[in-house]
Amino acid sequence: MGKVLELENVHKAYKVGFIPRKKPVLKGVTFHVNEGEIFGYLGPNGAGKTTTIKCILNLIFPDAGRITIFGQDSLRPRARQRVGFLPENPYFYDYLTGREFLGFYADLLGLHGQAREEKIGYFLKLVGMERAADLQLRKYSRGMLQRIGLAQALLNDPALVILDEPMGGLDPIGRKEFRDIIVNLKKEGKTVFLSSHILQDIEMICDRVAIILAGEIINQGYLGDLISEKVLYTEIIIGGVPAADFNHLGESVSSSGDRVLLKVYEEEKIDQVINLVQQKKGKIISLIPRTETLEDIFVNMVKSQ
């Protein structure tokens, strides 16, 4: 599997203040994205996600390090020939209609004639914006801008699609549709680089992730390797037995009415809980083993830094 995107020891500092001082934003970022995968780039706000993306796209220049796209130096415009990009909170020429907007980018990419019209029509349909195609962008909601922005990013049939927080501002249905589109992009053989601070999105669709914190990559790898299958604890909801009876077996998290939520850490104690409930003529309402999630890893890492 070839490397589509590669960052090697990328450093970037911004000058801040009246008397400029250098504030490091990226401190030696190194990772790569393999062909055909959905790569999640995860980090809290201000970690350096957007700065990394801007470095990749040559919108800002790294102070040190090397970035290659399809083996070409990212500084060359040709390297971006097969790249599609949707920025966070996309800003577009708001006096254009959706169709004109896509037309503008189609012209920039050198599309013309029938092929141009067909492509615009196809992508308007793909992102569900056919009905708003002749409306000016200033009248679009944030979610609609996100959709038309995605159409713009896909217009040149890119092999690498870079999406910066693509699901922000979308309603639950919109988020699902976006996820489906991204998964379909992978099926078409495209590589997707997805930056987000929403763990759920990344956990659901990404193959590999890199976690960035304060400008440094603190962990990266396949999701399966990062998240262990080990059961951390079991959550048992019990009805009809007072919480005090389980003190020696687990941690009572909450109790309302005659229901108790119990966290049991040792596997052998689960049977003891079940036996006790049967003895006391209570009932088990639910029993859910909790494995580690990306969120746990993320929160632990952020805490430990």
């Binding site: 801007k54 919108l59 040709r78 020939q81 920025p87 990013a153």
Partner: peptide, 8 residues
């Protein structure tokens, strides 16, 4: 941003 992200 979107403009210069194209091969321009």
């Amino acid at each position: 941003f979107t403009l210069l992200a194209k091969p321009i």
